[in-house]
């Protein structure tokens, strides 16, 4: 009932562990897979070892989270044990990568492709560092070049472009990625960024001062963003942002997502949130007489 395919990858269910959540080692990714995720994403891998920002890196509120972790990574050359152990994971594994130039994207993607993940996600949308990320995802021609050059060195591994919502050129960027040969769109990375100031000490609490906003509060923005993308690009869309229960997931799929990313919900509902969301989706589908999740993709447009 929940099984589907996304960009040519067979999924037992449409829930995907979003990048940057729990994805730091093969061991925890395996645990997430065992907790019912349809696919898992490795935390963004960069060109060389990087510590990321000092704490506080994540702030927690009733209806949203704010984070500026700052892309910590051992660097792609420094993860031998993880690459080996990733083979033991029995759901598709998506490798998220980031870089600070197109050349570096190509370098990282070429190596990562040699380790044969089921897909590579290009993080061209992180709002939390100066040199990486969002800069690539705000300009359609740069996004195009990143995708097309990465495609040349990654054989037939599906390439996902993870978009930032923080530009008025979202549709143009998505179209540029499509023209460049991307196999799917991941929409979206975190929003803002925002800021939280502690009034007693009169200081921003995040060490980086600003951070991307995620969680239930951004869900209506994501639903609308995906609704628009669905009308303008034909690539499959992985919908990410604020999904915490089965109804949210169904809503996102009706807007046009073929699969859904789960991130902040791990905080709100625990590591077994994947199975719980799947059970809830299934319950809704039974009540409303749907036999396959595929029947629901984009139905809000009819």
């Amino acid at each position: 009932m929940l099984s589907t395919s996304f960009a040519g990858i067979e999924l037992e269910n449409p829930t995907v562990l979003a990048a940057g959540i729990l994805g730091t080692s093969a061991a925890i990714l395996k645990r997430v897979a065992d907790s019912g995720a349809g696919a898992v994403t490795i935390k963004s891998i960069g060109p060389k070892k990087r510590e990321g920002h000092s704490n506080p890196t994540v702030l927690f509120f009733d209806s949203y989270l704010m984070n500026a972790v700052g892309l910590p990574t051992p660097g792609y050359r420094n993860m031998e044990r993880e690459w080996e152990e990733l083979k033991e994971i029995n759901v598709p594994v998506i490798a998220s990568i980031y870089a600070s130039s197109i050349e570096e994207f190509v370098e990282v993607a070429q190596y990562v492709a040699s380790r044969k993940p089921d897909a590579i996600e290009l993080n061209i949308s992180c709002p939390n560092t100066k040199a990486h990320g969002m800069l690539f995802g705000k300009d359609p021609s740069i996004a195009h070049d990143v995708v097309s050059q990465v495609k040349e060195v990654t054989n037939n591994i599906p390439i996902f472009a993870k978009l930032t919502p923080n530009t008025d050129r979202v549709i143009e960027v998505a179209r540029a990625c499509e023209e460049a040969g991307a196999d799917a769109i991941v929409a979206f990375n975190t929003w803002g960024p925002g800021m939280y100031i502690d009034i007693n000490t009169r200081r921003p609490v995040l060490h980086y001062r600003t951070g991307g906003v995620s969680g239930p509060a951004v869900k209506p923005l994501v639903v609308k963003g995906i609704y628009e993308l669905y009308e303008h690009v034909s690539l499959p869309i992985l919908g990410v942002g604020g999904i915490t229960n089965g109804n949210d997931a169904i809503e996102m799929i009706m807007a046009g997502a073929s699969a859904i990313g789960i991130g902040s919900a791990v905080y709100y509902r625990g590591i077994d949130v994947f199975k719980r969301i799947c059970d809830e989706m299934q319950g809704w589908m039974l009540t409303h007489d749907y036999k396959s999740i595929k029947e629901l993709v984009g139905v809000a447009h009819e």
């Binding site: 959540i21 730091t24 061991a27 890196t57 972790v69 910590p72 791990v266 625990g270």
Partner: peptide, 8 residues
């Protein structure tokens, strides 16, 4: 709080 996975 068990979200980032860094201490796994």
């Amino acid at each position: 709080v068990g979200l980032c996975g860094h201490c796994s």
